[in-house]
């Protein structure tokens, strides 16, 4: 994997993580707020002090430490980070000019990238005159035009309208497929991870909680955060994790008959529409150790008088639940 990324990053009190990815791969970084996702990106870019090592494309960035400007990174931060006083074209040409490319050639290459991202006609506009989606396209062009070895995307679609984000996601997938370097993408969206990434790293409290292919991580969540992202209930038990879908949960107001092992009591803490069903969030922390989700029909919601605070019982058939073990080595899981 000498052409890819190989890193061990420690930022005291914030992050201690091993990360690796092959050349051309997209690695999604997911996890709750404060898990260290952005710290991971800024450490790779060289913007925060860290210990450990970073190797990209067979070259060490940490031994000796390489200043930010000599690391070949493309950085797409959340929100607006375009230079407000420069036109879209000058923003994109900035990195080429800074690296000594002649003015005319830099303008030509910048224009070509703006064209590829569908914002070529807007090259003369300043960021203030661009919509959020257009500005993000310019930002991506600015990151890619310098042909970085490592592309860092920090929530590239946050703050965009749903339709705009969807269109940009499809386009970005096409550009990433052509991209020879390594891409790290921080995201809050399971869809980003599933559609754009070949590998997923789950960060929790500054550590890697899980890594693997998107399908594997989605099917076997090991943290509440990922379980919520993919819409699964996940319970941690002594011999592993138990996962089941909200639509397989039965809700009743009376104590259920029989001696089902998968049975919990709690209070309704929230109700939200979910497709044709109603997704009921139940505070079962005392019996299950975490909140659980159940999907019920609107009729059943009315019949059972499910309102916040109502006492309910939840049961799941053993055949609807999957159990998997904790996975001893997180780093090398496929």
């Amino acid at each position: 994997m000498s052409n890819g990324l190989l890193a061990r990053i420690e930022v005291p009190g914030r992050l201690a993580a091993d990360v690796e990815a092959g050349a051309g791969e997209v690695l999604a970084v997911i996890g709750p707020n404060g898990a260290g996702k952005t710290t991971l990106l800024t450490a790779l870019a060289g913007l925060v002090d860290m210990t450990g090592h970073v190797e990209v494309g067979g070259r060490s960035w940490t031994d000796p430490p390489l200043p930010v400007r000599d690391r070949r990174v493309g950085w797409v931060v959340q929100g607006q980070a375009l230079f407000p006083h420069l036109s879209a074209l000058d923003n994109v040409a900035f990195g080429l000019r800074a690296r000594g490319v002649r003015r005319s050639e830099a303008a030509e290459r910048a224009q070509a990238w703006l064209d590829r991202l569908g914002v070529g006609p807007l090259s003369g506009r300043r960021p203030g005159a661009l919509s959020g989606g257009q500005a993000q396209r310019v930002t991506i062009a600015r990151a890619l035009v310098t042909e970085p070895d490592l592309l860092l995307l920090d929530e590239p679609f946050s703050g965009l309208d749903v339709g705009v984000a969807a269109a940009l996601r499809i386009e970005l997938a096409a550009h990433l497929a052509d991209f020879a370097g390594v891409t790290l993408m921080v995201t809050h969206d399971a869809l980003d991870a599933l559609t754009l990434a070949q590998r997923v790293v789950v960060l929790d409290d500054g550590r890697v909680a899980q890594s693997g292919t998107p399908a594997d991580v989605a099917a076997h969540p090991r943290t509440d955060h990922v379980a919520r992202l993919v819409g699964l209930n996940v319970l941690a038990g002594p011999d592993g994790f138990t996962a089941f879908r909200p639509q397989d949960v039965t809700v009743s107001t009376a104590r259920p008959e029989g001696s089902a092992r998968l049975r919990w009591q709690g209070r309704v803490s929230g109700l939200t529409p979910h497709g044709d069903a109603v997704r009921v969030q139940v505070d079962t922390r005392s019996s299950a150790g975490t909140d659980l989700l159940a999907d019920v029909t609107p009729e059943a919601t009315a019949e059972l008088a499910l309102v916040p605070g109502a006492e309910v019982w939840l049961t799941v058939k053993a055949t609807a639940a999957r159990t998997y073990d904790r996975g001893p080595d997180l780093r090398d899981s496929p």
């Binding site: 870019a45 913007l47 400007r69 493309g74 800074a98």
Partner: peptide
Amino acid sequence: AVAATLGA
């Protein structure tokens, strides 16, 4: 910081 990542 953005300018530095762009090589400036």
